[in-house]
Each structure stands twice: as structure tokens, then as C-alpha cells.
Design a protein around this nucleic acid. Structure first.
Length: 1140
RNA sequence: GGGGGAGUAGCUCAAUCGGUUAGAGCGGCUGGCUUAUAUCCAGCUGGUUCCUGGUUCGAGUCCAGGCUCCCCUACCA
């Protein structure tokens, strides 16, 4: 008896509870720390984590990507590769601000200013720390191994920050304690001295972005632009192109048709259409398509001009067409807009000096008709209201024509002074007032609701406005007409966009269409707007000179210190955030005047884009940086990231290094609820991460994610989870089986067995050799799949293996474990199943870290104190088990299992249950009489397996020339198709008809065409009239004749089955002994007598009484082939377990 | 508007380079196996492979046009 037996496993495990125990195990043994230690200094595999926004609790959709991240890190750890294991948090930007505002009940930027920037920024930091701690906890729960901060420590820093940011604090780093002020400590999170996750609000991150921006400026790519930008009135900031598409939503707007009185043409009006009535006061022109055709129509006393094609959609009521002219004829007409008298309009028009074509002799500007090629006729009137102060395209057109710009709104989206009764009102809600006003002025024509896609603020959902504002941009360079591959080096040097494209080409994109999509984005992108008129974020390092108009870009904190002429003291000791950094003044490098930093903060994708540099210590330790750069692998959700994280990383790395920041990118799609809709709390289909983790277990979640196709959306829910759980439970139950029976048998793995080289157990059966070969295939195949970043393929390989293990190996071998008189055979089976399970556990370790660990603990760690104590500290097992591989045997087994299916189908058709033994079966194999490459002994062994599985006494291999089958020719189409072309149908017809001539060289002639032996497969196929089944050349023939003796044996097995059922109903222990009574007519019971001793052995019966059972005994009537018998069962004696 | 992806059984998805009769799982029905199982097996049920053409000896697969959905992108008031 070994010292220790394997721990018993419940048949119905509480997976979530076990996961908690494993987490505790890892914690108490410092397993992860020891893994990192073990890998240190080895060949590197560099994973770069895309920062998760630390603004909300972790959700199940995050778990998808984090599962990939953990799988590949763990896998590469099992290959012995050194890694950084650094998680990242995205910290700065509007999303945090909006939530803090909401918590404080703020509604505008004025509220923030009144509250105080320093305190507001501190609250933003605190919020980040809160959710960083929360997400850290959830990620640990998911089993994600990263260099995590202690969540309690993050919360402690948060609380200290709230108390007093300047107080000193000491934190234990990897190389010892570090002391600093709380504020600076928070700014140093993620550095080498502190370890843990990186935070994009860190000093280093911000500092390196400054360096990047300074480099852009050095090359002349940074500029201030004035443009009409999408603007969120609630947030008080412009929205960059990158953010625009996040917020397109269907929306109902007023479709308002307005009439404009033409000067010099009494009674004639232009009809224009707009969905933004608030822009009408800023109108300066009406645009027509010069090549479109316009008509003048009469409605009552009024004469209207509009495009010919639009009369049906735009006019209301009867009309009469009076005149038709090309749009070019209308150009230059002038009109009186309803709001031409507003002070703001007058002021703008007075300033505008118009050209010689003016009707007013170059004096004051007048509203006029202008040409514009972009005017369309699908909607509206074909005459477009132009307000360069209120729309991007209007602004561009106005710029090219020299039109005045009338800016009507302030930061909050309210009308500025000079708009009379509108001044101070919110542009979003003036529609009704404007319509009423237009009616009074006689300018109203028609109003009806209009549905269209309209951009909304991606953070707060407010519909966007357009404002002409000053923003800061990075110039992405010209877009050439020349095809990319014909560009000169000089052209590329001038255009950052092409430099990035070249970098994109060097990256492996999974799925492949990602490559094209990134290139598409780069081709169409505009200059990168990096400024935001907000408070919490990167302080743009731009000091602008009001005196001379030039600006300086500071490359980092050190340069700022050197150049500061005032305010450094106020900044010293603070992180580079507002308001403190705003205090620093420098001297303008052009004119020497004292300058201030612009108030804008940075686009948050700058924060995430710099991490291939900031987190790898680009500036402090170039050698270390080079060791990890570029990252071997990143993985993120595709939606959005082509223009966000991927783009910003690529742009920044191209500027700084002109090389790719990562080698391979795995993208994945979107997670939806099980009903196919986005998860939404108010729809009741949302599932919280921690709820899911405790209800289904994280291994089940991980399995769902890992086996999904990354480019397809996932529908996540509990029904799908139940399905996924089955796969895991099968593996679990195989292990439970092994443990159950080896415990009964007193078998335990030898010390050191887990580490032994692949060696077949003595007396290994053919099934043992087969499943061990499959284990080797599993390890090799899964390694290949994971090395290719294909978790889905790895899962498929695992699932097939587990299926083979449970449904074939174990099912065929149960008796070797439970009722086996041959200890050597039982040991061989135990050892084999043990090795197969152990291999499976190790292969599953990256995907199912908890289940794998539990199995490993049971199989190895708890048995052998000298063995590695965690599956995650073992190496990938393929090398150890490779010698088991026997592909000829695997192929033969596949054929055999096909034969089993056919035979079972035959039995079912004949109504012969499997318990009924049959006398004989014949089997023909594809392509000949024997299994290719298998020794005769193996062939015999396989036939025995077949006989046992099918309960058939003898199985005989037959040749294709036998009485039962005939030869058939199967032409191999992929080989002959191209050669034969149009002859194919005739050849196939001949093959089907059996019209074949066999040639001496093994080839055949079909329909007059000679095919070589290699071009055809000769199959055995059934001769009509025999009881056969066939498939792909496997032919099974069964003798269905039942003799009295066969019937008796069948009845005996039926009886055995009934007794086992009684045992189960009585809830007897597996090894409990019983007494049996078998009572029935002599002609029924008599033939069974020869089989009763076998029954006794199978059912652990001490005595089998041939009489009526006593009253108190549980009985059941069994309906046998020969007649009914009554069976009684009573537990024997004290029920003390007897050793088998 | 432009670009990309997808459309296969009631549901979720496969189907290698174009190759003979399009397969699994889940669900449903019928039967069977089983003291490892919340297991398993067989059979049945269920298909205009979105539609229309084309290329080909042969199309779920390739091509063209159309329909629907998703994603990306866009300066249509």
C-alpha cells in the first residue's frame, strides 16, 4: 500500500468554490512569484497590455480579452520564456471627469472651476485608484496572472490622497521601501521601484508624451488650427475625428424649410432646407450646384426657386413651373436673410471686404448665392444654407470663397452676445422659438420631423454642435495620388501617414483583414487633433506667446525646470497636471516674452499610445527597453482600436523610432448578451463579471471565450455557459473515476512518476498505447495552435482529446479498473489513465488554470512532495510525451470506431440490444485486408476490442473478394479532376455502375480512361441482399442468428444490469457486499444457472439464492427474453467495505 | 456615399486547394448503454447553403448583380 492515495473527487464539483481554494493556494505558496523568478533572465516573450479604463467595475466583456492575455502569457511561461507581466490602467481623460462630475452633481465646466481644479483633479485620481483596485480584484479572480498591486494598498493611497496629497507615505517596492509624498507616489505607480500595474497618469507616461510632442514640433508637424469642429456643449470641448464615430445615433431633428427673399427680384424667394435651425442666424450664403437645374415655381402669389429634382419632396401644395435655369445662372444673386439685422451679423459683414463682383461695390458684404459642387438633390431643396461658423463643410467652403464667419455659440453651446433675443439661450432648444420668429418675419415655409444619423458626444450622449475654434493638431502629412508602392523616399519622409503604413506592413494582423482596415484608416485620417479644453489629463506642453504668436513645446519636466522663469515653486512636488503645471512661465524662444501654457489637456489616446516606451523605460534604461521592444504580442477588441490605441501606438512609435511597436496583434469582436443584443442593465440582459464568476466559475467563462472565433461576436449567457461546462465536467469526471478506483485498489502513482520520461507501462494494452499516443498528439497540436495565437484551435484539440479519453478509452477500459483480477493489468491501466490525465491537465493549464491546477494537485502535488507543486511551474509537456506517438495505431483506431458505429446501427435496426451477445461479425477494411503498418498482434488486439465493445463473440477480417462484399472503385477527384476535365462524369458513372476493368499494375480502366493505382481507392462495398453497413470503405456484416445459449447469456446480462440498478437505488457503497434472490419458473431460471457465478462477481454478491426473497428485501421484476423473474437484493452483514 | 465582413438545420456554429451524398453541438422525438458522470450511444426530425445569373466536368466555396445584417469610414445642409 502506498503512503498516500489520491484525494477523492466529488462527482458534482462546485467549480467556483474550488477556484477560490486554488487562488488561496497560489497566494500562500507565492506560486506566481516563484514562476517569475524561475523565468527571469531567460529568452523574452514580450506582451504589452492595452490599458483598461479604470473608471468602472470589470465587466464580462473585459474578461474575454483578459482571458486571451492570460492564456498566451501562461503558455509562453510554460515554454520557459521571461515576461514582464505588467497590466495597465488608462487613467486620464473625459470619461473619468464625466463620472466625477456626475457624482458631484455638476452640470457645466463652471461648476468645476468653482469647485477648484486641484480638488477636482484629485477626485479624478481617486476614482482611478478606486476602480483600479476593483478591476485588480476581479482580474485576480479571473485567474489572470500579472504583477498586481495589492488592491488594499491602492485604496490606502486613494484615501491618503483625499486627506492630504502632500503627506509622506512609504510603500514597499520589489527592491525595498520607497518614500515620497502621496501625490508623487501615485505619480510613480508602475515604475521599476514600485512595480505593479502601469497607470497612464504616471509622471513617466506624461513626461514621455511631452518628449514625443516636442519631437513632432522639432519636425514642424505640430500646429494650431482654426476649424469648425464637432463640439459637445455639455462637456465644453471639441471632439476629435477619432472619437466621432463612437457616438453616431439615430435622432429626430426638425427638417425646416425656410424662404429667403431675393433682392432685386420682387416676390421671388430661395427655398433652403436645414436640420439645424439654430445655425440660421449665422447664415451668410446659399449654395447651389452650378450644374444642377433650378426652376422657378408659382404657389399663390409667391415665386420660389429650388432645384428641379426636389420639387416633389420640398414643395407643399399645388405649384406651377414657370422657368428653368442652370444653377450657375443663380450664382451672385443676393438676398435678405431673416437675421441680417442682428448686430453679430452686421459686425461680421462690415468686416468682410468682398470682391468686385459685389453688388455693393466692395463695401459691405451681402447674403448671396454661391456655387458649390457638393450640393445634392436627394434631400432638401438643392439650395444649401451656408453658415461657416456652424459647420465643418460650410467653414471650408466659406474659407475658399472668402465668406464671413459668424460664430454664434460659446463653450457651453449657448448663444453669445450680438444675437438679440437669442443671446444666452441653449442652441439645442431654440427650434420652436426660431420657427415662431421666422413665421413672424414671413420666412417660414415648412417644418416636419426628420430622422437621420447625427453625431453625439461619445461620453455623455449630448448631440454635438459645430463651433469654429482653435485646436492643436499633429500634421499627418499629405495624401498623394500616386500609388503607395511608387512613392519616393522623399515623399514618404514628408508624410507621416505613409511612414506609419510602412510600419503597419511589418505587423502580423489576426484576423488578416485588420491589416487592410488599419491602412484604410491611415489613408482617410485627417490631422490628429490632440487638444481638449478640459481639466483632467495630460497637460499639453505648449507655451504660446501672446506677444509674437509663436510657441514652444517642452520636451519634459527637466527642460521645463531649466526654462522656467516663474512659477516653478508652485509646481515643484506635484504631478504634471493642472492646475499646478499651469503656474510655470517660460520665456518665449522667439521674442523672449514671458509665456503661459495653453490651458488645454491632451487627447487620451496619447496616454495609451506612449506605453511601448514609457512602460519599457525608454528614456531611463535604453538597454532594458530594447530587450522588450517591440512587443511580441498585443490583443485587444477590434472595434474602435484601429483609430485609437493601435493608431496612437503606431503613430508615436513611427515618429520616435520609425519601427513597429508590436509584432503580432490578435483582435477580437464584441460580446453581446445571449439574446443577441448589447448587454444593458435596463434591458435585464446584463451579467456582472463577479456574478458570472461565482455562478458558473471562471474556468467555464475562459473556456467559452477561448473556444470562440475571435472575429465573431460572442453571445454570452448562462445557457451557453451550461453547454461549455459539459466539456470541463467530462474531464473532471474522468479524473474522479481514476481516483475512485485507484483508491479502492490501493494504487498510487510512484514518486517521481510525473517527471519520468515517456515509457509505456509494463503490459500496456493496445488501448493504453492508443490514448498515450493521443496524449502526445494533444501536447504537440495544442502547442502549435497556441504558438500561432489560435486559442480556438487549441480548445478544439483539447475537446477532441477529452472526448476520446472519456467516450472511448475509459468506456472500453472500465472493467480493468473496477473488477480486475490481474493487478498488473490494473496498474497498467491506472498508469496510462494517470499519464493521459496529467498531460491533459498540463496542456489545459493556460486555458483552464484552475481546473488544471486542481487536477495537478490531486495527481501529483499532494502525492509527491518532491515534485513541482503547481502545474503552472511545469514546462509544456510535448517533449516528454512525444515518444508515445504512434500515428498508424491512431489511424487504425479511427477506422475501428467507425466500424463500431456501423455495427451499433445494425443492431439498432435489428432490434438487438447491446446486452444480447451475438455470435459473429465480419469486417472489411478500406483498401485491403489489414490495417496498414500494424503488426499482426496489434490487429488481433484491435479485433478483440471490437468484439468486446460490440458484445460479439468473434470478429473476422474479410477480404474484399469475399462472398459478402464486392469491390468498388472510388476515383480520387482532386487528383484526376484537372487532368480529365469533361470526362469526369463518364468516369464517375462507370465507377458507380461497377463497369470497371482492373489492370495488372493496380490501376483501373473506367469508361475507356486508364487511372493509375494512386488515382483511385479500391473500396469494399456491400453486395446487395446481405445485412451489412458500410461507410468510406469500412464494411460490417453481422450474423443475427440467436441460439438458446446466446439468449441465456443475454438474459444473464440483463439480470446483472437489473441488480446493479437495485444497488444504485439502495445507494450502496461501490464495494458493499450483498445477498441476492432470483425467483422464477424453472424454464426461465434454469438456463441462467451457468452465468450466475459471473453475475455474483459483477454485483459483489456473496450468495445467490434460488428462491423467493424474504419479505423485507427490495425486489424488482425483470422481464427477460425467456420470461419474467423476480430479483431481490439485501446488503450483506454490517456493510463493512471489503477490499477488492 | 465609399470600404470590409457576414448570411449554411428551430438556435450556436463547421465544412481543407472548388471534388461525389453539406456536418457537429444544443433543442425536439424514439430507442439503447451505464454503480465515473450534471455522462454516453444509435436512430429519427430538421437544409432552396439569402436571391438571380455566370465560370467549371463539378460551386456552400470562385466571379457579377441584387437583398439583409454587422463593422469601418464619410463635409450632404
Amino acid at each position: 500500500m502506498p503512503d498516500r492515495l489520491m484525494r477523492a473527487l466529488s462527482a458534482q464539483p462546485d467549480l467556483a468554490a474550488r477556484e477560490h481554494r486554488i487562488l488561496e493556494l497560489w497566494r500562500s505558496r507565492a506560486t506566481f512569484a516563484r514562476l517569475r523568478q524561475r523565468l527571469r533572465g531567460g529568452r523574452t516573450w514580450s506582451f504589452l497590455d492595452g490599458p483598461i479604463t479604470a473608471n468602472n467595475p470589470m465587466a464580462v466583456h473585459h474578461a474575454w480579452g483578459r482571458t486571451y492575455k492570460d492564456i498566451f502569457q501562461r503558455f509562453h511561461a510554460m515554454l520557459g520564456q521571461d515576461q514582464r507581466w505588467q497590466n495597465g490602467f488608462d487613467c486620464q481623460g473625459l470619461w473619468v471627469e464625466v463620472n466625477v462630475e456626475r457624482e458631484l452633481g455638476f452640470t457645466s465646466k463652471r461648476d468645476i472651476e468653482a469647485y477648484g481644479l486641484a480638488d477636482f483633479v484629485s477626485l479624478c485620481k481617486q476614482r482611478v485608484l478606486t476602480y483600479a483596485a476593483s478591476q485588480t480584484e476581479d482580474s485576480i479572480r479571473l485567474g489572470m496572472w500579472m504583477d498586481w498591486n495589492d488592491p488594499q494598498e491602492l485604496l490606502r493611497l486613494r484615501d491618503l490622497l483625499a486627506q492630504d496629497p502632500s503627506q509622506p507615505v512609504t510603500v514597499m517596492g520589489p527592491d525595498g521601501p520607497v518614500t515620497d509624498s502621496v501625490e508623487m507616489m501615485v505619480g510613480r505607480l508602475g515604475t521599476a521601484a514600485l512595480g505593479g500595474s502601469y497607470f497612464t497618469f504616471s509622471n513617466e507616461n506624461n513626461d514621455l508624451i511631452w518628449g514625443f510632442l516636442a519631437e513632432c514640433h522639432r519636425r514642424g508637424w505640430l500646429y494650431k488650427g482654426r476649424d469648425s469642429m464637432p463640439w459637445c456643449g455639455r462637456c465644453g470641448t471639441g471632439i476629435s475625428q477619432m472619437e466621432m464615430n463612437e457616438g453616431y445615433q439615430d435622432r429626430e431633428d426638425p427638417g425646416l424649410t425656410v424662404r429667403l427673399a431675393l433682392r432685386d427680384r420682387p416676390g421671388e424667394w430661395l427655398l433652403v432646407w436645414t436640420t439645424t435651425p439654430w445655425t440660421l442666424p449665422s447664415n451668410v450664403a446659399a449654395a447651389v450646384g452650378p450644374r444642377l437645374s433650378y426652376v422657378k415655381v408659382r404657389q399663390g402669389d409667391d415665386l420660389y426657386w429650388l432645384a428641379r429634382e426636389t420639387v416633389g419632396q420640398a414643395l407643399r401644395g399645388p405649384y406651377e413651373v414657370l422657368e428653368e435655369r442652370p444653377g450657375s445662372d443663380l450664382v451672385g444673386w443676393t438676398y435678405d436673410a431673416p437675421y441680417h439685422a442682428l448686430p453679430a451679423v452686421r459686425e461680421a459683414f462690415d468686416e468682410a471686404r468682398v470682391g468686385e463682383d459685389s453688388d455693393d461695390d466692395g463695401a459691405t458684404y451681402v447674403h448671396r448665392v454661391v456655387p458649390w459642387d457638393e450640393v445634392g438633390q436627394e434631400e432638401g431643396t438643392g439650395i444649401v444654407h451656408i453658415a461657416p461658423g456652424c459647420g465643418a463643410e460650410d467653414f471650408q467652403l466659406g474659407k475658399s470663397l472668402g465668406l464671413p464667419v459668424i460664430v454664434s455659440l460659446d463653450e457651453a453651446g449657448h448663444f453669445v452676445a450680438g444675437f438679440d433675443w437669442l443671446t444666452g439661450r441653449d442652441a439645442q432648444v431654440v427650434t420652436e422659438a426660431v420657427v415662431d420668429d421666422l413665421s413672424r418675419r414671413g420666412a417660414f415655409y415648412h417644418l416636419e420631423p426628420y430622422r437621420h444619423r447625427y453625431p453625439h458626444c461619445w461620453r455623455c450622449g449630448t448631440p454635438l454642435l459645430f463651433r469654429v475654434v482653435d485646436e492643436w493638431f499633429i500634421d499627418m502629412g499629405p495624401l498623394y495620388d500616386t500609388p503607395r508602392d511608387q512613392l519616393t523616399a522623399a515623399q514618404k519622409d514628408r508624410s507621416l501617414r505613409y511612414q506609419i503604413m510602412d510600419v503597419v506592413d511589418t505587423i502580423e494582423w489576426i484576423p488578416g483583414f485588420g491589416h487592410q482596415r488599419e491602412l484604410d484608416w491611415l489613408r482617410s485620417m485627417q490631422d490628429w487633433m490632440i487638444s481638449k479644453k478640459r481639466y483632467w489629463g495630460l497637460a499639453l506642453p505648449i507655451w504660446e506667446c501672446t506677444a509674437c504668436g509663436s510657441f514652444d513645446v517642452i520636451s519634459g519636466r527637466d527642460e521645463l525646470r531649466q526654462r522656467a522663469v516663474a512659477g516653478w515653486d508652485a509646481f515643484e512636488g506635484h504631478t504634471p497636471h493642472r492646475p499646478y503645471v499651469d503656474a510655470v512661465r517660460i520665456a518665449c524662444s522667439a521674442c523672449g516674452a514671458e509665456t503661459e501654457r495653453i490651458k488645454d489637456v491632451g487627447n487620451p489616446w496619447l496616454d495609451a499610445g506612449i506605453v511601448p516606451f514609457s512602460t519599457l523605460h525608454y528614456r531611463e534604461d535604453p538597454a532594458e527597453w530594447r530587450r522588450w521592444f517591440p512587443a511580441d504580442f498585443i490583443t485587444e477588441s477590434f472595434p474602435g482600436q484601429f483609430r485609437n490605441w493601435f493608431y496612437s501606438m503606431l503613430a508615436m512609435s513611427t515618429v520616435l523610432r520609425r519601427e513597429a511597436p508590436f509584432r503580432t496583434i490578435l483582435g477580437y469582436a464584441t460580446l453581446f448578451a445571449e439574446d443577441g443584443r448589447p448587454m444593458h442593465k435596463s434591458w435585464g440582459n446584463s451579467i456582472e463579471f463577479d456574478e458570472a464568476a461565482e455562478r458558473i466559475g471562471v474556468d467555464v467563462m475562459r473556456w467559452m471565450f477561448a473556444r470562440a472565433r475571435p472575429e465573431d461576436n460572442i453571445l454570452f449567457g448562462y445557457a451557453a455557459a451550461d453547454e461549455a461546462r459539459q466539456d470541463l465536467l467530462i474531464l473532471w469526471n474522468v479524473a474522479a473515476f481514476l481516483v475512485t478506483y485507484t483508491r479502492l485498489a490501493g494504487w498510487s502513482p510512484r514518486a517521481g512518476m510525473a517527471a519520468e520520461a515517456a515509457k509505456l507501462p509494463p503490459g500496456a494494452s493496445i488501448l493504453d498505447r492508443w490514448i498515450l499516443s493521443r496524449s502526445a498528439g494533444l501536447a504537440e497540436g495544442a502547442r502549435q495552435a497556441l504558438a500561432d495565437h489560435d486559442a480556438r484551435a487549441a480548445c478544439a484539440i483539447v475537446a477532441v482529446f477529452v472526448d476520446d479519453l472519456s467516450k472511448w478509452y475509459l468506456r472500453r477500459n472500465r472493467r480493468r479498473f473496477s473488477r480486475n483480477d490481474d493487478p498488473a493489468d490494473r496498474a497498467a491501466a491506472s498508469e496510462t489513465l494517470y499519464t493521459a490525465l496529467l498531460t491533459a491537465a498540463r496542456v489545459c493549464a493556460p486555458i483552464l488554470p484552475f481546473l488544471a491546477e486542481e487536477l495537478y494537485q490531486v495527481l501529483v502535488a499532494e502525492i509527491d512532495g518532491s515534485a513541482t507543486d503547481s502545474v503552472h511551474l511545469t514546462r509544456w509537456p510535448d517533449g516528454e510525451v512525444a515518444a508515445y506517438r504512434d500515428q498508424a495505431l491512431e489511424a487504425a483506431m479511427t477506422t475501428l470506431r467507425r466500424a463500431v458505429e456501423l455495427a451499433r446501427a445494425l443492431r439498432a435496426r435489428a432490434g438487438l440490444r447491446l446486452r444480447q451477445p451475438l455470435a459473429h461479425m465480419w469486417l472489411a477494411l478500406p483498401g485491403g485486408r489489414s490495417w496498414e503498418g500494424l503488426p499482426a498482434a496489434d490487429e488481433r488486439a484491435l479485433l478483440e476490442v471490437l468484439a468486446e465493445e460490440l458484445n460479439i463473440r468473434s470478429v473476422e477480417l474479410i477480404e474484399d473478394g469475399s462472398d459478402l462484399v464486392e469491390r468498388r472503385v472510388k476515383p480520387l477527384l482532386p487528383l484526376i479532376g484537372k487532368r480529365l476535365g469533361a470526362q469526369v462524369p463518364a468516369v464517375l458513372a462507370a465507377a458507380r455502375a461497377g463497369d470497371v476493368q482492373y489492370l495488372p499494375d493496380g490501376g483501373v480502366r473506367l469508361a475507356g480512361v486508364e487511372l493509375a493505382a494512386s488515382e483511385v481507392e479500391i473500396l469494399a462495398s456491400p453486395r446487395p441482399g446481405t445485412a451489412v453497413a458500410h461507410d468510406e470503405g469500412v464494411v460490417v456484416v453481422i450474423d443475427l442468428t440467436l441460439t438458446a445459449e446466446l439468449r441465456a447469456e443475454g438474459d444473464a446480462r440483463e439480470l446483472t444490469r437489473a441488480v446493479q440498478d437495485l444497488r444504485k437505488q439502495a445507494e450502496l457503497a461501490l464495494d458493499a457486499r450483498v445477498d441476492l434472490w432470483v425467483d422464477g419458473e424453472p424454464e426461465v431460471v434454469g438456463p441462467l444457472r451457468d452465468h450466475l457465478s459471473a453475475l455474483a462477481i459483477d454485483t459483489l454478491a456473496d450468495d445467490v439464492h434460488h428462491s423467493a426473497p424474504p419479505e423485507e428485501v427490495a425486489t424488482v421484476i425483470v422481464d427477460l427474453d425467456a420470461g419474467a423473474v423476480r430479483v431481490g437484493l439485501r446488503p450483506n452483514g454490517s456493510g463493512v467495505a471489503a477490499a477488492p
